[in-house]
Design a protein around this nucleic acid. Structure first.
Lengths: 209, 209
DNA sequence: CTCGACATACCGACTAGTTGGTATGTTGTC
DNA sequence: GACAACATACCAACTAGTCGGTATGTCGAG
């Protein structure tokens, strides 16, 4: 039997250090923040050496930018896979998404909080590259949410002439705020409570309150 | 003329280093985050030396805790001074407060964002002392907001049995989330938009939508 | 009033350890 | 054997915190 492309289990496989570093950054930065997370720490969590780090990334900042892009990719399945995405009524899809986000708010805080939201707080004034990368990720989220909102408005109408993109950004804002509250109290319940307010608001806007 | 208790202008006055350090911490941490702000930097911003720093605070963490307490004190006048606090209807006072917060969202982002909200994001998992101090500050805000909400519910009733403290926490969550969005886009307008959604939600809850 | 004893407020050079980043060597793969 | 993917050793800069010392106040006894 010849050697195959399939990586063997006993040897550390090559070529995935970059992905492991990004995953380690997601995990560690969500727990400790960006500045408090050292390059050495990320390397240790990823199980690679510092040489590998600076082979793939020119700087810590470059990793941060790549990790922000990676976060967008990681979040994408959230809009495609869950069953509620198959619902016929766009408003049901929107409400299904809110319920989905609500269901995520369980367990350790660092497992459901937002990587880019955490990072942008520290870097918005010191690194415009990181800030822009985080903005792109959050904008991608809102862009993914807006079509269903737009369609729901078209089908059901909405109170006070609220815009689709504006509401999408508000959803994101409430989620980010809920994360902070959960971190503050070290309790996800307080975050669920806020997202429940958000759901009620949406229901009322669409006349289902 | 004998020397008085009034500090002369040419000599640096004694006894206010502590307050200056806390103010410098508020300013610097809101811009760069907690971990990225060095003790030397805070000292430079406050115009005092490192010796003075460690005379007043046992550690950087101790300053953080004191600064969180100082933040609460700094925010208190917000609930007492503005004209809307004199309104008769508690719902008008609540809405007046939201409008007041809305009006604050102007100019440079680091001038209206929340010190404790920024700090707790970085420290919730690494320093429980800081986390608890931030929680106390945010809880104090909610406690100050809740009585008017409670009274407004008593006078006007509220939809869906929403609780006063729950709504107060939601107000805080939306504000925190709005700050993150403003940092992300480097633009206060996006934050104002979210707080406008919040105001509309409150209006609808109280049947004024 | 004043003088000494003491306490508080502050200074700035120093240290031990950590940081992001580099320079160079090794290993696997086409 | 050439090139990408790592590993190891190292460095200059920066970090929080220390420490011996000084300036400025407080206060009670004489």
């Amino acid at each position: 039997m010849t050697t195959t492309h399939t990586p063997s289990q006993d040897r550390p496989q090559r070529g995935n250090a970059r992905a492991k570093l990004i995953a380690a950054a997601h995990q560690t930065v969500r727990r400790k923040g960006y500045a408090a997370t050292s390059v050495d720490e990320i390397c240790a969590a990823a199980g690679v050496t510092k040489g590998a780090f600076f082979h793939h990334f020119a700087s810590k900042e470059a990793l941060a930018v790549a990790a922000a892009e990676g976060w967008t990719a990681r979040a994408a399945p959230m809009f495609e896979l869950p069953p509620h995405t198959k619902l016929d009524d766009p408003l049901d899809r929107l409400l299904g998404h809110i319920d989905f986000r609500l269901a995520m708010l369980e367990g350790p805080v660092e497992d459901f909080t937002c990587f880019v939201g955490t990072m942008v707080q520290e870097a918005y004034a010191t690194s415009d590259a990181i800030r822009a990368a985080c903005e792109a990720s959050i904008t991608a989220y809102c862009d993914a949410l807006a079509p269903d909102i737009e369609a729901a408005i078209a089908r059901h109408g909405i109170a006070h002439g609220v815009g689709a993109m504006s509401l999408a950004r508000h959803v994101q804002a409430v989620l980010q705020g809920a994360f902070i509250m959960a971190k503050t109290a070290n309790d996800p319940a307080i975050a669920r409570d806020s997202v429940t307010h958000l759901k009620r608001y949406i229901l009322m806007l669409f006349g289902r309150g």
